[in-house]
């Protein structure tokens, strides 16, 4: 044994099962049921948008790292795939390909690489891309295809359709009473299963919940931020609804419609842009819930989840300063 040197390092000498790569793979697995649901509802267009978003996101990350930053590309960690996937989930399935590519460029370039890559971005990159597109292409980004009931596997242009949130928002704005609008929107069961118009990944709360259970089981995420976000949305919108049931939508509708579940499960739990402590996650989620309802009810847009999350992302450093873990023995 004299010829062989021993390795020396400080303890610990064994390591746990978590790795960045594995956690990204777990997130992708968790997102698959929602993709399946979306293909079922919107046809192959959903798949088309998703693939374009993923491929362009990975490509932009590679190009920026290789040729602009001149560092070793880290696309193998899988984070660009997750960003592309999440961006696609926030887009309508009839979006032209070049808008998707622009979205990917903004997500990866502006949202992630300009801050130093994975781990350093203060804002959720997929949402940076989405919000950029919402502001730049308001028409394309708010024109959703009608859910398919026949001719499921066609790739032709489908007729367009407003989301439940948009129907309610416009109706209430025009002075209609909320109970009269209920007839125009899908039932709660349909909202839960995903039989409604909307962005690719947001429609089916059921499929998203399946992924959520998987991520909880794999200990990639904790319940704190999603539960506090959905809970605060429910309570806040419930209070408004109780003051005037004719003027405000009911809380169950707010939670089931739009991107609440997608945001709660996959965006508020984004490791990089959420607080470090459980207490911080609760404050973070609560803030997102309240801002979402404020935008939906009083703001210009029918949907407010992405703005709410980005706004609270900006508060994360402050939340981390404020919410220290309880020190043992003090």
């Amino acid at each position: 044994m004299k010829d062989k040197l021993l390795n020396v390092s400080l303890s610990p000498h064994v390591y746990g099962r978590f790795s960045v790569h594995q956690m990204m793979v777990d997130v992708v697995i968790a997102l698959l049921p929602a993709l399946a649901m979306s293909v079922y509802i919107f046809g192959l267009h959903a798949l088309r948008v998703t693939l374009i978003a993923i491929v362009s996101a990975v490509l932009f990350e590679y190009i920026i790292q290789k040729f602009m930053l001149k560092v070793k590309p880290s696309i193998s960690d899988g984070s660009a795939i997750v960003t592309g996937l999440l961006l696609a989930y926030n887009l309508p399935s009839n979006l032209p390909w070049w808008i998707i590519v622009v979205g990917s460029l903004v997500s990866i370039g502006l949202g992630k690489m300009s801050f130093g890559g994975l781990g350093n971005n203060p804002f959720n990159p997929a949402l940076v891309g989405r919000v950029f597109l919402v502001i730049s292409f308001p028409v394309e980004m708010t024109t959703w295809p009608k859910p398919l009931l026949t001719d499921r596997w066609q790739l032709a242009d489908a007729s367009t359709h407003a989301t439940p949130l948009a129907i309610v928002k416009e109706g209430l704005f025009a002075g209609e009473a909320y109970p009269d609008l209920i007839a125009q929107i899908p039932s709660y069961l349909d909202l839960f299963l995903g039989r409604m118009g909307g962005c690719i990944g947001e429609i089916s709360a059921l499929a998203l919940l399946l992924g959520c259970l998987y991520l909880l089981y794999r200990k990639v995420i904790t319940w704190h931020a999603p539960v506090s976000m959905l809970g605060s949305m429910f309570i806040f919108s419930g209070l408004l609804w109780l003051t005037n049931p004719a003027k405000f939508a009911d809380p169950l509708f707010h939670v089931l419609a739009g991107g609440a579940f997608l945001g709660a499960i996959y965006m508020t739990t984004d490791l990089v842009t959420s607080p470090m402590t459980h207490q911080g996650m609760l404050i973070f989620g609560t803030g997102i819930g309240i801002i979402t309802i404020l935008i939906r009810v009083f703001g210009a847009y029918p949907e407010g989840v992405s703005f709410a999350i980005l706004i609270m992302n900006a508060f994360v450093p402050l939340i981390n300063r404020m919410c220290k873990p309880k020190r043992f023995g003090e």
Binding site: F18, V20, M23, S74, M276, P325
Partner: peptide
């Protein structure tokens, strides 16, 4: 790799 700010070190620290 870069810290991905997952917070696992915080929740696992026994102190």
């Amino acid at each position: 790799l870069n810290c991905i700010r997952c917070g696992k070190c915080v929740t696992k620290c026994p102190l």
